[in-house]
């Protein structure tokens, strides 16, 4: 039973991380209908910005986190404007967009490796709260990991409310439903997509920061974050915010309880096993209705 509590906590932590990356991935898919492979790399840029600003640039910690999240959002937005928007205008096929996003992933990864070397860096959080260890039953969780879960819950509730009740949310849903019709009735679809990409990337950047604080940053971390986010989104249902949340936590639990039975080195193999099963048998996810 002791290990059970710890595994449950680890599952929540993993689920929270995936959910933050999956949110943006899923929102972008919802409005543009393509699987953005570069999304995870944008998240890792968030972590690296904190490394550059707080550790090497000696800015106050909270300021650097804020700037890092902002930078990730702007970067995602900029890539969308410079790279994907022209392709959308040309009505490029989704294969073209996916290959392009793989290119973006590699470019960002190698830029990070060139600037910060390909070694592993740990981010130090100055706050005592982050390092405090809380015991829940027989499991342990740090303040940072609690923050991660809290951030996931808050951001998802906020995101859900915005999508449901604000004008921006209505526009996002309209563009996701049918971009052409939305444009005809006067929804500024490109601006809506830009906004979605900005917020999605900023949240991913926050995930990158928190992952960096929890375990550290390395240039190829983005790929793993992306694959987990993509798996979570597909499990839950692409294009749906609640789906991303549900899928992310489900994936967290499957992965962490999976290593109860098999060695932890195989953890990622479990999640892709789940991905393939869902792709084959329920590609529309748990929540979405079959198309």
């Amino acid at each position: 039973m002791e290990i059970f509590t710890q595994l449950a906590l680890n599952s929540l932590i993993a689920g929270a991380t995936y959910s933050l990356v999956a949110l943006g991935f899923n929102l972008v898919f919802g409005t543009t209908r393509f699987l953005n492979m570069g999304h995870g790399a944008v998240a890792s840029v968030g972590g690296y910005m904190v490394l550059a600003l707080a550790r090497n640039g000696h800015l106050p910690f909270t300021v650097s986190v804020f700037l890092a999240v902002l930078a990730a959002g702007l970067l995602g937005w900029l890539i969308d404007r410079l790279v994907y928007a022209p392709l959308r205008t040309r009505r490029a096929s989704s294969s073209v967009l996916v290959i392009t996003s793989l290119g973006v992933l590699i470019v960002l990864q190698s830029l990070l490796a060139i600037i910060f070397t390909s070694q592993f860096w740990t981010l130090a959080a100055p706050s005592v709260w982050f390092a405090t260890v809380f015991s829940i039953g027989s499991g342990n969780i740090t303040g940072l990991q609690l923050t991660l879960i809290l951030a996931s819950v808050l951001i998802f509730s906020g995101g859900w409310l915005v999508l449901r009740f604000s004008d921006f949310g209505k526009q996002v849903r309209a563009v996701g439903d049918d971009e052409e019709v939305a444009r005809i009735i006067g929804v500024p679809s490109e601006r809506v997509i830009g906004g979605t990409v900005f917020w999605g990337s900023a949240v991913a950047g926050l995930a990158g920061v928190l992952v960096g604080l929890d375990t550290g940053v390395y240039p190829t971390m983005g790929l793993l974050l992306l694959l987990s986010a993509a798996t979570a989104s597909i499990i839950g249902g692409l294009g749906s915010v609640t789906g991303a949340l549900l899928g992310a936590y489900l994936l967290g639990f499957v992965e962490n309880f999976g290593i109860w039975f098999i060695p932890s080195g195989w953890k990622t193999a479990i999640s892709f096993g789940v991905l393939v099963i869902f792709l084959l048998f329920r590609p529309h996810g748990i929540l979405n209705k079959e198309k």
Partner: peptide, 19 residues
């Protein structure tokens, strides 16, 4: 699988075999 799902499926498969 079709289109980008195929791409994603192969990327996932590549990662599994790498592991």
């Amino acid at each position: 699988l079709t289109w980008d799902y195929y791409v994603l499926g192969t990327v996932g498969f590549n990662y599994v075999i790498y592991v």
